[in-house]
Write a protein that binds this DNA or RNA. Structure first.
Length: 470
RNA sequence: GGCGGGUUGGCGGAGAGGUUACGCAGCGGAUUGCAAAUCCGUGUAGACCGGUUCGAUUCCGGUACCCGCCUCCA
């Protein structure tokens, strides 16, 4: 069996991964707060943990992995959006979830086995909070329920800080009802215009962190294997999750391995609205950048390093993928039951998700197109959708430039070019040939002429309208 | 102030204490009516200063610079 090594934030070391139960490898990844389109940074953990999911399914069997990624559908940002637009919260969250799944699907990410919504687990959260109060780890005050960080000696262990250090930094919310300034909210009161649920502490809503603790407990149990997310979540979110879960369920260890992806930069700078370099996955897709190109750019960089999104990298990735597509154009994927991924590729992934090496390995397979195709698909590339969308047949399915006959048109144009060329070979007058070729190039078509004949391959900028009259 | 990460050739970006990374771009060649595509070949590294070592870009320490977190954030 493949030995998987993963970097564990908890120990700050790369460790051999040993599942608690090999028949059910369990992974929880923090999902989005659904108030708007996912921005590019939101997509990085999705792609990173999608690769881990694929690796785990390969090593342990697809039926022996459980992947949970939540939707945070109760949050003040959602409330603000509802107030601002006049739309209902349910409407906003339902639409945003749909967008999210569409956009992440475009990036080649498999859907997790469970995608729980926080609002479906309010009861479990309330029960957990009651339990924490009963065990002396939480207290009600000022209409809120707070977690008492002083009641958990290991608070701060994951992110390598102590309560004293953080108070010295003094960047904590001052609230008179807090026993310790670092105490964080488990439950807070809701006014009538805000979403709320009846609870022993009055009508209110959960704090941010408790949902992940409750849903992980419900779906994966008190101990599970991997918990993932962006590095910015390590503190406070994950630290607080650990405190809640380990205090409520001291019999369990919560997550064994903690994995965090580094942040995303855009052209060397942090993505922010004020810098004007803020954009969503959908923005890029709408610009005509295929989701697989975004996926490739993400996987070029190791997940524990900051990843810089640049137009240059996108162009490079696009070029590589077009090459892969071109080499494998006439091939059919091997049925999964008969496919085994390349050992060197699996070894790269098993080494703390060295996706860059895995991609390099696929590139080496260019001389074996069938292997290239199958292994690229194993990594989530060269999907049917991508191959179609970038082939003649697919042009018609993209909708905006419906040209059902473009395939026939191309083959007749290829024939015409071939005939002209045959004549020109005799006459040595290539003017007509060059004229037609130039027009085809202008329409975004790659012209391949060889001794065997002429091949026309539509490129990414293919514009069928320009073929009119040729 | 506290915690953490980074600095590799023109660009992106890995592994490994001593042997070619790889890709892109460049250059040379094959092929081509000219191209494209493809194939072959090829140059350029390891922020700085010390230490350990027979030998370090790779281990250890320091310096400089960059970045993230500590407040909602993937």
């Amino acid at each position: 069996m493949t030995i998987i090594k993963l970097h564990n934030t908890k120990t700050r070391r790369k460790e051999v991964f040993t599942p608690l139960n090999p028949d059910n490898v369990r992974m929880y990844v923090c999902g989005p707060t659904v108030y708007d389109r996912a921005h590019l940074g939101n997509a990085r953990p999705v792609v990173v943990f999608d690769m881990l999911y694929r690796l785990l399914r390969h090593v342990h069997g697809a039926d022996h992995v459980t992947y949970v990624r939540n939707f945070t559908d109760v949050d003040d940002k959602i409330n603000a959006k509802a107030a601002q637009t006049g739309r209902s919260i349910g409407d906003i969250t339902a639409e945003t979830i749909r967008w999210y799944l569409d956009d992440m699907g475009a990036l080649g990410a498999l859907e997790p086995d469970h995608m729980p919504r926080a609002t479906a687990y309010i009861g479990a959260m309330i029960a957990m909070i009651e339990d924490l109060i009963a065990k002396g780890h939480a207290y009600a005050a000022g209409g809120h329920v707070l977690f008492a960080v002083d009641s958990y000696s290991r608070y701060g262990a994951l992110s390598g800080r102590t309560v004293e250090d953080m108070i010295a930094g003094a960047r904590v919310e001052v609230a008179p009802y807090k026993r310790n300034p670092m105490d964080f909210v488990l439950w807070k009161p809701s006014t009538d215009d805000l979403p709320g649920w009846d609870s022993p502490w009055g009508r209110g809503r959960p704090g941010w962190h408790i949902e992940c603790s409750a849903m992980a407990q419900e779906l994966l149990g008190a101990s599970f294997d991997i918990h993932g997310g962006g590095i910015d979540l390590a503190f406070p979110h994950h630290e607080n999750e650990i405190a809640q879960s380990c205090c409520a369920h001291p019999e369990g260890g919560f997550a064994t391995v903690w994995m965090h992806n580094e942040m995303l930069l855009v052209e060397g700078k942090k993505m922010s609205k004020s810098l004007g370099n803020f954009f969503t996955v959908r923005d890029l897709l709408d610009q005509g950048i295929p989701g697989e190109v975004i996926r490739y750019v993400f996987l070029m960089t190791h997940y524990r390093k900051p990843m810089d999104w640049t137009a240059d990298k996108a162009a490079q990735a696009q070029k590589t993928l077009e090459n892969w597509r071109s080499v494998t154009r006439d091939l059919h994927p091997t049925p999964l039951s008969q496919f085994a991924p390349d050992p060197a590729l699996v070894a790269a992934l098993a080494n703390d998700l060295n996706t860059h090496s895995a991609l390099a390995r696929v590139n080496e397979l260019r001389t074996k197109p069938q292997k290239l195709l199958d292994n690229a698909r194993f990594l989530g590339f060269l999907s049917d959708g991508y191959r179609q969308a970038t082939s003649v047949q697919g042009i018609e399915t993209t909708g905006n430039t419906a040209m059902p006959e473009s395939s026939d048109m191309l083959s007749s144009l290829a024939q015409k070019l071939n005939d002209l060329r045959a004549v020109a070979m005799q006459s040595k007058d290539f003017a007509d040939v060059d004229r037609l070729k130039a027009a085809l190039l202008d329409a975004g078509i790659e012209v391949r002429m060889s001794k065997d004949g002429v091949e026309l391959v539509p490129g990414p900028g293919f514009d069928p309208a320009k073929l009119e009259g040729l």
